[in-house]
Amino acid sequence: MNMTVSLILNFGLLVFLVAVALALARWRHLFPVAMLTGLFSLLSASLFTVLSAPDVALTEAAVGAGITTVLFLATFGLTRAREKPVESSRRLIGLAVTVITGAILVYASLDMPHFGAPDTPVQEHPLRHKYLVESQHEIHIPNTVTAVLGSYRGYDTLGEVAVVFTAGMAVLMLLGRGRRGRKRTKE
C-alpha cells in the first residue's frame, strides 16, 4: 500500500478511536456504551487490517465487535443497564489512577521503535528469516501465522485451547448450576 495513504488511514482511525473512547467515558447509560465498545473493536480491527495483520483483525472483529457486545447486552438483562453515580472524591482517585497509568504507558512508548522504522527487532532478528522464509521449505504452509501457531508453537496453542475449555467450564459451573438448582427447588 502507498505509504501516505497508509499514514492517513492510520491517523484517521486513531482519531476515531480516541473520539469513541471519549464518548464511552461520557455516557451513563450502559446500552450505548456496549454499542460503542463494539464500534471501538471494529475500528481496532480496521487498524489491524491497515497494519497488515488480518488474522488479528479477524479475531478482533468477531470476538470484540460480535460476541463481547452480545454478552454485555445479555448481562444488562440480568443486572442494571445504568451506571451508578459515583461520589466526587472517588472520581478524583479514579482520575489520578488513570492519569498516572497513562503517563507510565506514554513513557514506556518512548522506548519503542518509531513507526515504520527499518531497524526494529521484528525486522532484524534471525527468527524472522526462519519463520518467513525457511518455514516455506520446512513445512510448506503458505500462511506463516498458522504455521507458527500450529506447528512451531503447537504446545502454546494446545495450552490456549485448554484455557478456553477451562474458562468455558468454569462459567458453566458458576452460572449453569444455579439455574438447574433453582429448577430443582421449584419441583
Binding site: L71, I141, G150, S151, V164, G168, V171, L172, L175
Partner: peptide
C-alpha cells in the same frame, strides 16, 4: 504438516465454538 494442522485447527474450532455458544446460552437463558 498440512494434515496435522488441519486436524488440530479443527479441534481448536470445535472447542472455541462450543465454549462461546455455551457461555451465550448461560447468560441469555438466565
Amino acid at each position: 504438516q498440512h494434515y496435522g494442522l488441519i486436524i488440530i485447527e479443527l479441534g481448536v474450532g470445535i472447542t472455541v465454538a462450543s465454549v462461546m455458544i455455551a457461555i451465550f446460552y448461560v447468560f441469555a437463558g438466565r
